[in-house]
Computed example of a mutant assay.
Amino acid sequence: MNIDDLKNTWNEDVSDETPEISTEQSQKINLPLEKIRKNMRMEFWSTIGILLFGFAVVWIPFPDAPLFKFKFYLTVLLFSMVIVVSFFFSKFFKLYKEISSPMMKTYESLQDLLFQFKLNEQYYLSFILSFVPFLVCEMIIVIEFIPHPKPLSDLRIATILISAVAIGLFGLFLLGKYWYKSFYGKYVSQIENLLSKLKK
């Protein structure tokens, strides 16, 4: 077999493995991608709004305002949350940019996009679970600074914090799975189904 034959065989193999996507198929794939983009924008702006609301609530002056130390600790906690949120949203933003201008010409490029969706699903669950330590820290601050009718025993405090960790981890994990499936997972499944049809 000469060089030209080898080149032709190689090109045929590559074209078989990476079938071209028609305009009609591309449009079908763009529909769930647009839903994903829309939900990512909504979630980004909602998160920004919640963080700004948190800062506002902590520092709004009102009668019988909590101690400065209480406000300062909550502010430090909120700034820490901003750092964590910024890290994860930088990961999500890379995916958002990629699906905003997709080069969906072949089956292979879409397979790569699906791999990134799967990777971002893990980022997403990590993002949700990262709020457990903040929940625990907030409870510690509240226990320390909010007056109680009678002092809490060490056992009571330990029970509250251990319960917060256990319930927080389990609850946030379930919430993260449900939230991802509702806002992103079902659209990723649609793309997977379209790809399986394309492969046939």
Results as ranks from 00 to 15, higher is better:
156 R>D: 08
168 G>P: 03
36 I>D: 06
31 L>H: 00
71 K>N: 14
101 S>T: 09
138 E>G: 15
44 F>Y: 15
74 L>N: 15
76 V>L: 15
120 N>H: 15
32 P>R: 05
137 C>P: 01
57 V>C: 05
45 W>K: 08
55 F>C: 08
170 F>V: 15
71 K>G: 09
130 S>H: 06
154 D>I: 11
44 F>C: 04
99 I>Q: 08
39 N>L: 02
123 Y>S: 12
78 L>Y: 10
35 K>C: 06
154 D>C: 02
79 F>Q: 01
110 L>C: 07
62 F>C: 01
133 P>Y: 03
116 Q>L: 08
71 K>F: 01
50 I>C: 03
150 K>G: 00
73 Y>L: 14
139 M>E: 07
96 Y>W: 14
43 E>G: 11
49 G>S: 11
92 F>S: 01
123 Y>V: 03
138 E>A: 14
61 P>H: 02
76 V>M: 14
103 M>A: 05
145 F>V: 04
69 K>I: 14
112 D>E: 10
57 V>Y: 08
42 M>R: 13
103 M>L: 09
140 I>Q: 03
35 K>W: 00
80 S>D: 05
68 F>A: 10
165 V>N: 01
85 V>P: 03
123 Y>A: 07
156 R>I: 10
66 P>T: 06
155 L>K: 15
132 V>P: 02
39 N>I: 00
83 I>P: 02
74 L>W: 06
85 V>K: 12
108 E>A: 12
38 K>D: 10
168 G>E: 06
66 P>N: 05
87 F>N: 09
131 F>G: 10
84 V>W: 06
119 L>I: 05
40 M>R: 07
42 M>A: 08
103 M>C: 00
50 I>L: 11
141 I>R: 01
131 F>M: 12
86 S>P: 02
96 Y>N: 06
58 V>T: 15
124 Y>S: 14
129 L>W: 05
32 P>T: 01
113 L>C: 10
133 P>L: 05
134 F>H: 10
161 L>C: 08
56 A>Q: 03
62 F>M: 09
137 C>Q: 01
140 I>Y: 02
152 L>M: 13
136 V>N: 00
110 L>S: 04
39 N>E: 14
67 L>K: 14
128 I>E: 09
97 K>R: 15
47 T>G: 07
150 K>F: 11
76 V>Q: 09
128 I>F: 13
115 F>V: 12
167 I>G: 03
75 T>C: 05
138 E>H: 12
113 L>P: 02
64 D>E: 11
103 M>K: 11
159 T>W: 08
77 L>F: 04
87 F>P: 02
113 L>E: 09
43 E>C: 03
38 K>N: 08
125 L>Q: 10
49 G>T: 12
127 F>I: 05
70 F>M: 04
102 P>S: 08
78 L>R: 03
91 K>T: 10
169 L>W: 14
32 P>E: 03
77 L>N: 15
79 F>H: 00
61 P>N: 04
58 V>P: 09
108 E>W: 06
64 D>F: 13
157 I>H: 02
37 R>G: 07
136 V>C: 00
79 F>Y: 08
107 Y>D: 00
112 D>W: 10
69 K>D: 13
139 M>G: 05
160 I>S: 07
108 E>Q: 13
125 L>Y: 11
56 A>D: 00
120 N>M: 06
107 Y>S: 09
37 R>E: 02
73 Y>T: 07
143 I>Q: 06
76 V>W: 05
165 V>K: 01
75 T>R: 05
102 P>C: 04
110 L>N: 07
40 M>L: 15
161 L>K: 02
